[in-house]
Each structure stands twice: as structure tokens, then as C-alpha cells.
Simulated scan of single mutants.
Amino acid sequence: MKNTAVEYLIKNPLLHIGMIETIHRDTADILYAESDGVLIKEEKSNAYMLSVDNFDIGKELINTISRCNLILSHQEFMVDYIIDRFKLNKKLECFQAVYMDKSKLIISEELEIKQLDKSHIEVILEHYGKLSKDRLFWMF
């Protein structure tokens, strides 16, 4: 099922990079993977991630989930149904950026890019108010 999931997701790697990386890290419970969509549950965060070709298959997959409080939909046409189905009260639209080139990115010496770890949680919370401290801990 892993190969089928990746085959579907790799058709649009920029859109699906979060799902692809979750599968590559082996933290994905792949609940559905066919030529029309993928539904996974990320094991550390318990977040569901969905990408589908059409509303009907998305609705069918969403209805297999008994309850959840965090779900990522890669298609806007699923959002209202998900919010209604799980009685969610928050919607957050996110945009990702991905550097796909194999060569090292040349940056200004004024800028330092490094891997985040638990020591950065307070700084993250100071500048980004969309996640709680508890939610950040599962990321590391």
C-alpha cells in the first residue's frame, strides 16, 4: 500500500510533500491508497491527511473516521464537509514552500537556516500563534 500511496502523491509532489515525507519517515498509518486518493494518519500527531481526486471518494473516506480533531485536506472542496462532519471550530489555511534542487541553496551570510529542535519551542511560540506548546512537542 505504501507504493500505491507514493505513486498517487508523487503526481503532485509540491502539494503532497508533507504526506510523502510522513510516509518516508515511517510515521504514517496508511488507511487508504488507491489511484483516486490517499488517506493517512500521522502516528505522532494523530493528524489525518487526505488527498483525493473527487468529493465522493473524499466523503467516503472521511466517513470511515469516527472522530478527529486535526485533519489536513489537500483539496478545498473537502473542507466544508470535514468541518461539518467533525464539528470543528477552527480552519487554518497553510501554504508550503519546498526547495527541490539538489545543490546547496546560497543565502546571505546574515541568515542562518538550521534544523529546529525542542530548544526552539519558546521562540516558535513567541512568533507563531497557531500551535500550542503541547502540539509543538510532538513535532520533535
Rank of each mutant, 00 (worst) to 15 (best):
A5Y: 10
E7N: 13
Y8T: 07
L9I: 14
L9V: 11
K11M: 04
N12W: 03
L14A: 14
L14D: 13
L15W: 01
I17K: 08
G18M: 08
I20E: 04
T22L: 04
T22W: 02
I23A: 06
H24M: 12
D26G: 07
T27I: 10
T27V: 11
T27A: 04
D29G: 08
I30M: 11
I30Y: 11
I30G: 10
L31I: 09
Y32I: 07
Y32S: 15
E34A: 07
D36P: 00
V38E: 06
L39N: 04
I40T: 07
I40N: 06
K41T: 00
E42D: 01
E42T: 03
E42V: 05
E43S: 08
S45C: 03
S45R: 05
N46V: 05
N46W: 06
Y48A: 02
M49R: 11
M49L: 11
M49Y: 07
L50K: 07
L50C: 12
D53P: 00
D53R: 05
N54F: 11
F55M: 00
D56E: 05
D56F: 03
D56M: 05
G58S: 07
K59D: 00
L61R: 02
N63D: 14
N63H: 05
I65T: 02
S66N: 09
N69P: 01
I71V: 04
L72Y: 04
L72Q: 00
L72P: 00
V79N: 13
D80G: 12
D80F: 12
Y81A: 15
I83C: 08
D84V: 11
D84K: 15
R85H: 08
R85G: 00
F86I: 10
F86C: 08
F86V: 09
L88C: 08
L88F: 07
N89Y: 07
K91P: 05
L92E: 10
E93Q: 15
Q96D: 10
A97F: 15
A97Q: 11
V98K: 14
M100K: 15
D101K: 15
L105Q: 06
L105A: 15
I106E: 13
I106N: 10
S108E: 13
E109T: 13
E110T: 08
E110C: 01
L111M: 11
E112C: 02
E112P: 00
E112M: 03
I113P: 01
I113H: 02
K114H: 05
L116H: 10
K118V: 10
S119M: 07
H120S: 13
H120A: 13
I121K: 10
I121H: 11
I124D: 08
I124T: 08
E126M: 10
L131H: 00
K133R: 12
K133Q: 03
D134S: 10
R135I: 02
R135D: 04
R135W: 05
L136N: 06
F137K: 14
W138C: 01
F140D: 04
